[in-house]
Design a protein around this nucleic acid. Structure first.
Lengths: 190, 190
DNA sequence: TCACCTAACGCAAAGAGTTAGCTTTAGCGG
DNA sequence: CCGCTAAAGCTAACTCTTTGCGTTAGGTGA
Protein backbone atom coordinates (compact mmCIF):
# COMPACT_ATOMS: atom_id res chain seq x y z
CA UNK A 1 0.00 0.00 0.00
CA UNK A 2 2.91 2.22 0.72
CA UNK A 3 4.26 2.87 -2.77
CA UNK A 4 7.55 1.59 -4.01
CA UNK A 5 8.16 4.94 -5.64
CA UNK A 6 11.77 4.57 -6.62
CA UNK A 7 11.58 0.92 -7.63
CA UNK A 8 9.53 0.75 -10.78
CA UNK A 9 9.25 -2.46 -12.67
CA UNK A 10 10.41 -0.92 -15.93
CA UNK A 11 12.42 2.20 -16.47
CA UNK A 12 10.65 2.99 -19.73
CA UNK A 13 7.08 2.21 -18.80
CA UNK A 14 4.24 4.56 -18.17
CA UNK A 15 4.70 4.39 -14.42
CA UNK A 16 8.23 5.66 -14.79
CA UNK A 17 7.09 8.54 -16.96
CA UNK A 18 4.44 9.49 -14.44
CA UNK A 19 6.91 9.38 -11.60
CA UNK A 20 9.41 11.50 -13.49
CA UNK A 21 6.91 14.15 -14.41
CA UNK A 22 5.48 14.25 -10.90
CA UNK A 23 8.91 14.64 -9.36
CA UNK A 24 9.77 17.33 -11.85
CA UNK A 25 6.52 19.12 -11.13
CA UNK A 26 7.25 19.08 -7.40
CA UNK A 27 10.70 20.54 -7.90
CA UNK A 28 9.44 23.23 -10.25
CA UNK A 29 6.53 24.28 -8.07
CA UNK A 30 8.61 24.33 -4.89
CA UNK A 31 11.12 26.51 -6.68
CA UNK A 32 8.41 28.82 -7.95
CA UNK A 33 6.04 29.17 -5.02
CA UNK A 34 7.70 27.54 -2.05
CA UNK A 35 6.54 24.41 -0.35
CA UNK A 36 3.98 26.18 1.78
CA UNK A 37 1.84 26.76 -1.25
CA UNK A 38 2.29 23.27 -2.65
CA UNK A 39 -0.79 21.11 -3.01
CA UNK A 40 -1.40 17.74 -4.55
CA UNK A 41 -3.87 19.00 -7.16
CA UNK A 42 -1.33 21.63 -8.19
CA UNK A 43 1.39 19.04 -8.68
CA UNK A 44 -1.01 16.82 -10.57
CA UNK A 45 -1.96 19.56 -12.98
CA UNK A 46 1.64 20.54 -13.66
CA UNK A 47 2.63 16.92 -14.12
CA UNK A 48 -0.27 16.26 -16.43
CA UNK A 49 -1.83 13.55 -14.31
CA UNK A 50 -4.92 13.39 -12.17
CA UNK A 51 -4.72 13.90 -8.39
CA UNK A 52 -5.98 10.43 -7.68
CA UNK A 53 -2.90 8.98 -9.34
CA UNK A 54 -0.68 10.81 -6.90
CA UNK A 55 -2.80 9.91 -3.91
CA UNK A 56 -2.77 6.27 -4.90
CA UNK A 57 0.96 6.04 -5.48
CA UNK A 58 2.31 8.25 -2.72
CA UNK A 59 -0.49 8.43 -0.20
CA UNK A 60 -0.11 12.10 0.63
CA UNK A 61 1.96 15.19 0.00
CA UNK A 62 4.38 14.42 2.79
CA UNK A 63 5.42 11.07 1.41
CA UNK A 64 5.80 12.54 -2.03
CA UNK A 65 8.01 15.31 -0.69
CA UNK A 66 10.02 12.77 1.27
CA UNK A 67 10.53 10.82 -1.91
CA UNK A 68 11.69 13.85 -3.83
CA UNK A 69 13.89 14.99 -0.96
CA UNK A 70 15.87 11.78 -0.83
CA UNK A 71 16.67 12.09 -4.50
CA UNK A 72 17.87 15.64 -4.00
CA UNK A 73 20.00 14.61 -1.02
CA UNK A 74 21.85 12.00 -3.02
CA UNK A 75 25.38 13.32 -3.55
CA UNK A 76 26.11 13.71 -7.23
CA UNK A 77 29.87 14.04 -7.03
CA UNK A 78 32.49 11.90 -5.35
CA UNK A 79 34.43 13.61 -2.56
CA UNK A 80 37.38 15.59 -3.90
CA UNK A 81 40.99 14.49 -3.55
CA UNK A 82 43.07 17.11 -1.78
CA UNK A 83 46.08 14.98 -1.02
CA UNK A 84 45.51 14.12 2.62
CA UNK A 85 42.85 12.68 4.85
CA UNK A 86 42.67 15.85 6.90
CA UNK A 87 42.02 18.10 3.95
CA UNK A 88 39.71 15.61 2.22
CA UNK A 89 37.57 15.14 5.29
CA UNK A 90 37.62 18.82 6.21
CA UNK A 91 36.54 19.77 2.76
CA UNK A 92 33.80 17.17 2.71
CA UNK A 93 32.50 18.20 6.13
CA UNK A 94 32.47 21.87 5.18
CA UNK A 95 30.56 21.15 2.02
CA UNK A 96 28.17 18.84 3.86
CA UNK A 97 27.45 21.49 6.45
CA UNK A 98 27.09 24.15 3.82
CA UNK A 99 24.55 22.19 1.80
CA UNK A 100 22.61 20.78 4.70
CA UNK A 101 22.38 23.87 6.88
CA UNK A 102 20.92 26.11 4.19
CA UNK A 103 17.19 26.70 4.50
CA UNK A 104 16.72 24.54 1.43
CA UNK A 105 18.90 21.78 2.82
CA UNK A 106 17.17 21.78 6.19
CA UNK A 107 13.83 21.63 4.44
CA UNK A 108 14.92 18.61 2.45
CA UNK A 109 16.20 16.83 5.53
CA UNK A 110 12.98 17.47 7.35
CA UNK A 111 10.94 16.32 4.39
CA UNK A 112 13.01 13.17 4.14
CA UNK A 113 12.47 12.41 7.82
CA UNK A 114 8.89 13.44 7.68
CA UNK A 115 6.84 11.32 5.37
CA UNK A 116 8.81 8.24 6.16
CA UNK A 117 6.80 5.75 8.15
CA UNK A 118 9.29 2.90 7.96
CA UNK A 119 12.48 4.93 8.23
CA UNK A 120 13.66 3.78 4.84
CA UNK A 121 14.25 7.21 3.41
CA UNK A 122 16.14 8.45 6.44
CA UNK A 123 18.31 5.36 6.34
CA UNK A 124 19.06 6.09 2.71
CA UNK A 125 20.29 9.58 3.59
CA UNK A 126 22.58 8.17 6.22
CA UNK A 127 23.85 5.61 3.76
CA UNK A 128 24.76 8.35 1.31
CA UNK A 129 26.92 10.06 3.91
CA UNK A 130 28.49 6.76 4.93
CA UNK A 131 29.41 6.01 1.32
CA UNK A 132 31.13 9.33 0.90
CA UNK A 133 33.06 8.92 4.12
CA UNK A 134 34.03 5.39 3.18
CA UNK A 135 35.45 6.68 -0.07
CA UNK A 136 37.51 9.32 1.71
CA UNK A 137 38.79 6.87 4.30
CA UNK A 138 39.61 4.20 1.72
CA UNK A 139 41.61 6.68 -0.31
CA UNK A 140 43.51 7.74 2.80
CA UNK A 141 44.20 4.14 3.69
CA UNK A 142 45.52 3.67 0.18
CA UNK A 143 47.98 6.49 0.85
CA UNK A 144 49.14 4.67 3.95
CA UNK A 145 47.51 7.08 6.39
CA UNK A 146 46.07 5.84 9.66
CA UNK A 147 42.32 6.39 9.62
CA UNK A 148 39.49 6.22 12.11
CA UNK A 149 36.59 3.91 11.34
CA UNK A 150 33.61 5.05 9.33
CA UNK A 151 31.41 4.76 12.39
CA UNK A 152 33.72 7.00 14.38
CA UNK A 153 33.48 9.69 11.72
CA UNK A 154 29.72 9.37 11.61
CA UNK A 155 29.47 9.58 15.40
CA UNK A 156 31.84 12.48 15.87
CA UNK A 157 31.48 14.53 12.69
CA UNK A 158 28.24 13.78 10.86
CA UNK A 159 26.09 13.32 13.95
CA UNK A 160 27.11 16.57 15.68
CA UNK A 161 26.64 18.48 12.44
CA UNK A 162 23.23 16.98 11.83
CA UNK A 163 22.16 17.42 15.45
CA UNK A 164 22.93 21.10 15.35
CA UNK A 165 21.36 21.56 11.94
CA UNK A 166 18.13 20.05 13.17
CA UNK A 167 17.98 21.19 16.78
CA UNK A 168 20.15 24.29 17.07
CA UNK A 169 20.50 25.99 13.72
CA UNK A 170 22.19 29.04 15.24
CA UNK A 171 25.90 29.61 15.38
CA UNK A 172 26.92 26.98 12.87
CA UNK A 173 29.96 27.72 10.76
CA UNK A 174 32.67 25.90 8.88
CA UNK A 175 35.11 26.44 11.75
CA UNK A 176 32.94 24.14 13.82
CA UNK A 177 33.07 21.50 11.11
CA UNK A 178 36.85 21.82 10.98
CA UNK A 179 37.12 21.39 14.75
CA UNK A 180 35.10 18.19 14.60
CA UNK A 181 37.30 16.79 11.86
CA UNK A 182 40.58 17.61 13.58
CA UNK A 183 39.26 16.10 16.80
CA UNK A 184 38.27 12.83 15.20
CA UNK A 185 41.65 12.59 13.46
CA UNK A 186 43.64 13.41 16.58
CA UNK A 187 45.84 10.46 17.64
CA UNK A 188 43.93 10.41 20.89
CA UNK A 189 41.09 8.73 19.03
CA UNK A 190 43.34 5.69 18.93
CA UNK B 1 0.70 34.74 13.81
CA UNK B 2 2.49 31.66 14.96
CA UNK B 3 0.84 31.00 18.30
CA UNK B 4 2.68 31.29 21.55
CA UNK B 5 1.00 28.09 22.68
CA UNK B 6 2.98 27.43 25.82
CA UNK B 7 3.19 31.07 26.87
CA UNK B 8 -0.27 32.14 27.81
CA UNK B 9 -0.73 35.50 29.40
CA UNK B 10 -2.57 34.03 32.37
CA UNK B 11 -2.51 30.48 33.62
CA UNK B 12 -6.13 30.59 34.66
CA UNK B 13 -7.69 32.28 31.65
CA UNK B 14 -9.91 30.84 29.01
CA UNK B 15 -7.03 30.46 26.58
CA UNK B 16 -5.22 28.26 29.06
CA UNK B 17 -8.26 26.10 29.54
CA UNK B 18 -8.70 25.67 25.81
CA UNK B 19 -5.06 24.76 25.38
CA UNK B 20 -5.19 22.24 28.20
CA UNK B 21 -8.27 20.51 26.89
CA UNK B 22 -6.94 20.45 23.34
CA UNK B 23 -3.63 18.97 24.44
CA UNK B 24 -5.44 16.40 26.54
CA UNK B 25 -7.68 15.53 23.61
CA UNK B 26 -4.67 14.99 21.37
CA UNK B 27 -3.00 12.70 23.87
CA UNK B 28 -6.17 10.70 24.42
CA UNK B 29 -6.99 10.29 20.76
CA UNK B 30 -3.45 9.35 19.80
CA UNK B 31 -3.48 6.74 22.55
CA UNK B 32 -6.84 5.41 21.38
CA UNK B 33 -6.60 5.45 17.61
CA UNK B 34 -3.02 6.26 16.73
CA UNK B 35 -1.85 9.41 15.06
CA UNK B 36 -2.69 8.23 11.58
CA UNK B 37 -6.36 8.56 12.32
CA UNK B 38 -6.05 11.91 14.06
CA UNK B 39 -7.85 14.87 12.53
CA UNK B 40 -8.41 18.42 13.67
CA UNK B 41 -12.19 18.16 13.78
CA UNK B 42 -11.84 15.04 15.93
CA UNK B 43 -9.58 16.80 18.40
CA UNK B 44 -11.90 19.77 18.46
CA UNK B 45 -14.91 17.67 19.29
CA UNK B 46 -13.14 15.81 22.07
CA UNK B 47 -11.79 19.03 23.49
CA UNK B 48 -15.16 20.72 23.34
CA UNK B 49 -14.07 23.53 21.04
CA UNK B 50 -14.73 24.32 17.41
CA UNK B 51 -12.21 23.37 14.74
CA UNK B 52 -11.66 26.96 13.77
CA UNK B 53 -10.25 27.66 17.22
CA UNK B 54 -7.58 25.06 16.69
CA UNK B 55 -6.80 26.20 13.18
CA UNK B 56 -6.46 29.77 14.34
CA UNK B 57 -4.22 29.01 17.29
CA UNK B 58 -2.04 26.24 15.91
CA UNK B 59 -2.36 26.59 12.17
CA UNK B 60 -2.54 22.89 11.37
CA UNK B 61 -2.36 19.44 12.86
CA UNK B 62 1.40 19.25 12.51
CA UNK B 63 2.07 22.31 14.60
CA UNK B 64 -0.35 21.13 17.23
CA UNK B 65 1.36 17.75 17.39
CA UNK B 66 4.71 19.46 17.59
CA UNK B 67 3.46 21.51 20.50
CA UNK B 68 2.18 18.48 22.34
CA UNK B 69 5.35 16.54 21.59
CA UNK B 70 7.61 19.13 23.17
CA UNK B 71 5.63 18.97 26.38
CA UNK B 72 5.92 15.21 26.44
CA UNK B 73 9.65 15.41 25.80
CA UNK B 74 10.25 17.67 28.78
CA UNK B 75 12.07 15.62 31.40
CA UNK B 76 10.04 15.41 34.58
CA UNK B 77 12.75 14.20 36.92
CA UNK B 78 16.23 15.51 37.64
CA UNK B 79 19.08 13.17 36.71
CA UNK B 80 19.81 10.70 39.49
CA UNK B 81 22.86 10.87 41.74
CA UNK B 82 24.91 7.69 41.56
CA UNK B 83 28.03 8.97 43.21
CA UNK B 84 30.25 9.61 40.21
CA UNK B 85 30.20 11.44 36.91
CA UNK B 86 30.70 8.23 34.98
CA UNK B 87 27.75 6.48 36.52
CA UNK B 88 25.53 9.58 36.50
CA UNK B 89 26.17 10.26 32.84
CA UNK B 90 25.96 6.62 31.85
CA UNK B 91 22.68 6.26 33.61
CA UNK B 92 21.32 9.41 32.07
CA UNK B 93 22.41 8.41 28.56
CA UNK B 94 20.91 4.96 28.89
CA UNK B 95 17.62 6.38 30.03
CA UNK B 96 17.69 9.01 27.30
CA UNK B 97 18.28 6.39 24.64
CA UNK B 98 15.65 4.14 26.11
CA UNK B 99 12.96 6.80 26.08
CA UNK B 100 13.85 8.36 22.79
CA UNK B 101 14.41 5.24 20.72
CA UNK B 102 11.05 3.69 21.47
CA UNK B 103 8.50 3.97 18.67
CA UNK B 104 6.62 6.45 20.81
CA UNK B 105 9.74 8.46 21.52
CA UNK B 106 10.77 8.58 17.89
CA UNK B 107 7.31 9.70 16.94
CA UNK B 108 7.45 12.52 19.44
CA UNK B 109 10.85 13.63 18.23
CA UNK B 110 9.68 13.63 14.66
CA UNK B 111 6.55 15.52 15.56
CA UNK B 112 8.57 18.07 17.48
CA UNK B 113 10.88 18.61 14.51
CA UNK B 114 8.07 18.50 12.07
CA UNK B 115 5.58 21.24 12.58
CA UNK B 116 8.16 23.71 13.66
CA UNK B 117 8.74 26.40 11.09
CA UNK B 118 10.98 28.60 13.22
CA UNK B 119 12.89 25.83 14.95
CA UNK B 120 11.71 26.96 18.36
CA UNK B 121 10.34 23.61 19.46
CA UNK B 122 13.41 21.70 18.34
CA UNK B 123 15.60 24.18 20.18
CA UNK B 124 13.53 23.60 23.28
CA UNK B 125 14.15 19.87 23.10
CA UNK B 126 17.86 20.45 22.81
CA UNK B 127 17.69 22.85 25.74
CA UNK B 128 16.05 20.19 27.89
CA UNK B 129 18.92 17.79 27.24
CA UNK B 130 21.48 20.53 27.84
CA UNK B 131 19.88 21.37 31.20
CA UNK B 132 20.05 17.79 32.35
CA UNK B 133 23.66 17.44 31.29
CA UNK B 134 24.54 20.71 32.97
CA UNK B 135 23.07 19.42 36.19
CA UNK B 136 25.10 16.22 36.00
CA UNK B 137 28.31 18.07 35.18
CA UNK B 138 27.78 20.68 37.88
CA UNK B 139 27.28 18.00 40.48
CA UNK B 140 30.46 16.25 39.35
CA UNK B 141 32.37 19.50 39.49
CA UNK B 142 31.08 19.95 43.02
CA UNK B 143 32.63 16.60 43.88
CA UNK B 144 35.92 17.81 42.51
CA UNK B 145 35.84 15.63 39.40
CA UNK B 146 37.28 16.90 36.13
CA UNK B 147 34.47 17.24 33.61
CA UNK B 148 34.17 17.83 29.91
CA UNK B 149 32.15 20.83 28.74
CA UNK B 150 28.42 20.61 28.15
CA UNK B 151 28.97 21.14 24.44
CA UNK B 152 31.40 18.22 24.29
CA UNK B 153 28.84 15.93 25.86
CA UNK B 154 26.18 17.13 23.46
CA UNK B 155 28.46 16.63 20.47
CA UNK B 156 29.78 13.22 21.44
CA UNK B 157 26.93 11.62 23.35
CA UNK B 158 23.59 13.26 22.62
CA UNK B 159 24.24 13.94 18.95
CA UNK B 160 25.33 10.40 18.04
CA UNK B 161 22.40 8.95 19.94
CA UNK B 162 19.94 11.27 18.26
CA UNK B 163 21.47 10.78 14.84
CA UNK B 164 21.08 7.04 15.08
CA UNK B 165 17.60 7.27 16.51
CA UNK B 166 16.48 9.38 13.59
CA UNK B 167 18.49 7.98 10.70
CA UNK B 168 19.51 4.44 11.66
CA UNK B 169 17.13 3.01 14.21
CA UNK B 170 18.61 -0.48 13.94
CA UNK B 171 21.20 -1.91 16.26
CA UNK B 172 20.89 0.64 19.03
CA UNK B 173 21.48 -0.61 22.55
CA UNK B 174 22.57 0.68 25.92
CA UNK B 175 26.10 -0.66 25.37
CA UNK B 176 26.47 1.88 22.60
CA UNK B 177 25.37 4.65 24.94
CA UNK B 178 27.89 3.46 27.52
CA UNK B 179 30.68 3.48 24.94
CA UNK B 180 29.91 7.05 24.02
CA UNK B 181 29.97 8.14 27.64
CA UNK B 182 33.25 6.43 28.48
CA UNK B 183 34.80 7.91 25.35
CA UNK B 184 33.80 11.46 26.17
CA UNK B 185 35.08 11.05 29.73
CA UNK B 186 38.41 9.56 28.66
CA UNK B 187 41.32 11.84 29.59
CA UNK B 188 42.13 12.08 25.88
CA UNK B 189 39.25 14.51 25.56
CA UNK B 190 41.42 16.93 27.47
C1' DT C 1 -15.90 48.20 41.80
C1' DC C 2 -17.47 49.14 37.28
C1' DA C 3 -17.25 50.07 32.53
C1' DC C 4 -14.47 49.80 28.55
C1' DC C 5 -11.45 47.31 25.19
C1' DT C 6 -9.07 43.78 23.15
C1' DA C 7 -8.10 39.16 22.14
C1' DA C 8 -9.95 34.81 21.68
C1' DC C 9 -13.80 31.77 20.69
C1' DG C 10 -18.28 30.11 18.43
C1' DC C 11 -20.94 29.70 14.38
C1' DA C 12 -21.85 28.89 9.65
C1' DA C 13 -21.04 28.96 4.84
C1' DA C 14 -17.89 28.80 1.06
C1' DG C 15 -13.84 26.80 -0.83
C1' DA C 16 -10.31 23.35 -1.38
C1' DG C 17 -8.39 18.91 -0.78
C1' DT C 18 -9.12 13.88 -0.33
C1' DT C 19 -11.19 9.49 -1.04
C1' DA C 20 -13.45 5.72 -3.61
C1' DG C 21 -15.93 3.19 -7.30
C1' DC C 22 -15.85 2.31 -11.83
C1' DT C 23 -13.97 2.59 -16.55
C1' DT C 24 -10.23 2.77 -19.70
C1' DT C 25 -5.58 2.12 -21.34
C1' DA C 26 -0.72 0.80 -21.51
C1' DG C 27 2.44 -2.66 -21.57
C1' DC C 28 3.97 -7.26 -20.45
C1' DG C 29 3.44 -12.44 -21.24
C1' DG C 30 1.75 -16.25 -23.75
C1' DC D 1 -1.04 -11.08 -32.25
C1' DC D 2 -4.23 -11.53 -28.31
C1' DG D 3 -5.49 -11.66 -23.71
C1' DC D 4 -4.41 -10.17 -18.71
C1' DT D 5 -3.18 -7.26 -15.15
C1' DA D 6 -1.60 -3.25 -13.01
C1' DA D 7 -1.81 1.52 -13.23
C1' DA D 8 -4.12 5.77 -14.68
C1' DG D 9 -8.31 8.51 -15.89
C1' DC D 10 -12.74 10.17 -14.55
C1' DT D 11 -16.30 11.72 -11.49
C1' DA D 12 -18.96 12.32 -7.49
C1' DA D 13 -19.36 12.24 -2.62
C1' DC D 14 -17.13 13.40 1.42
C1' DT D 15 -14.17 15.66 4.81
C1' DC D 16 -11.20 19.05 6.01
C1' DT D 17 -9.83 23.92 5.89
C1' DT D 18 -10.57 28.70 5.57
C1' DT D 19 -12.90 33.01 6.43
C1' DG D 20 -16.18 36.74 7.86
C1' DC D 21 -18.88 38.19 11.45
C1' DG D 22 -21.05 38.24 15.86
C1' DT D 23 -20.27 37.13 20.79
C1' DT D 24 -17.89 36.54 25.14
C1' DA D 25 -14.26 36.25 28.49
C1' DG D 26 -11.13 38.62 31.02
C1' DG D 27 -7.68 42.12 31.57
C1' DT D 28 -7.24 47.35 32.25
C1' DG D 29 -7.82 51.95 33.93
C1' DA D 30 -10.70 55.24 36.21
Amino acid sequence: MKAMSRQMVRPGGRSARVQASVHAAVRELVAENGREALTVPQVAQRAGVTPSTIYRRWGDLQELLSDVAVERLRPETAPGDHGSLLSDLTSWAEQFLDEMSSPTGRAYIRDALLGDPDGGNAGQCSAYAAEQIDAVLARAAGRGERTPGTEAVIDHVVAPLMYRILFRPDGLDSAYARRLVTAVLAPAAH
